Simulated assay, not measured.
Amino acid sequence: MNVTIVDYNSGNISSVINSFNEVAKNKVKLKVTSDLNKIKSSDKVVLPGQGSFKSCVDALNNIKGLVDTLNEFVINHKKPLLGICVGLQMFADIGYEETETKGLGWISGQVSKIDNQNGKYKLPHIGWNQINILKDSKIFKNIENNPHMYFVHSYEFIPEDKSVISSTTDYSSNIVCSIEKENVFGTQFHPEKSDKTGLKIIDNFINL
């Protein structure tokens, strides 16, 4: 099985690569690339994202044909894709970080700044927080509820269809932490920085 981590120059993804290498060893072939043919021939794709919504969308668009290839992978071929942090946020129709920016439009919704209730909550939301698993998601297989996961973000994904939400965390309000819709998976937290539970989530994705 081939798993590809999309490297589209969106910040440092070494911890994503290292954790997937740790979990994937002897199981799957792991590639880190933006080569369209290699992405097309993959069984699964990981879309990381660091920095702002706009900078990540711009970086995707800067590689000719990449967005079309990802659309084909997800929508036409219905192969599994895991978005991490801004990688998840880009599933939305639109994001409001820096400026209004069009997302990939895979899951209807928007990415807005977390309401910090006039400074009551610090932004970015950074560090460990408990998540509440809301549905029997394939990536949470054999994980007990309320694990602590690692977050770094100031913006949240608000999907129109609440049935896609697989977990939330309580920070100023119920913030969406992960989604699952058919073959599309995403986590707002960083599984690659979330100790053994995070590695288990990565393992679950690889074993889908």
Rank of each mutant, 00 (worst) to 15 (best):
I143N: 00
W128F: 05
I133L: 07
S172G: 01
E156T: 15
E160T: 09
N146A: 14
K138L: 14
M149D: 03
L134E: 12
H153N: 07
I165E: 07
S167Q: 05
H148N: 15
I143G: 00
F151M: 08
H148S: 15
L134W: 03
Y155C: 14
D170P: 01
I126G: 05
Y150C: 10
P159N: 05
K141C: 03
K135R: 13
V164Y: 07
E156N: 15
Q130S: 10
N132A: 08
F140S: 04
P147Y: 08
Y150W: 10
D161C: 02
N129C: 12
S163A: 04
I133D: 00
F140D: 02
W128Y: 11
Y171Q: 06
K138S: 08
I131G: 01
I139H: 02
Y171P: 02
V152N: 05
D161L: 03
K141P: 05
F140A: 04
S166E: 12
L134T: 12
S163F: 00
Q130F: 03
Y155Q: 10
D136I: 09
T169C: 15
K138Y: 08
V164T: 10
K141G: 07
I131Y: 00
I131F: 04
Q130K: 13
Y155E: 09
I131D: 00
D161G: 03
Q130L: 10
M149A: 09
P159E: 10
D161T: 07
Y171A: 05
T169N: 11
Y155K: 10
K162W: 02
S166I: 09
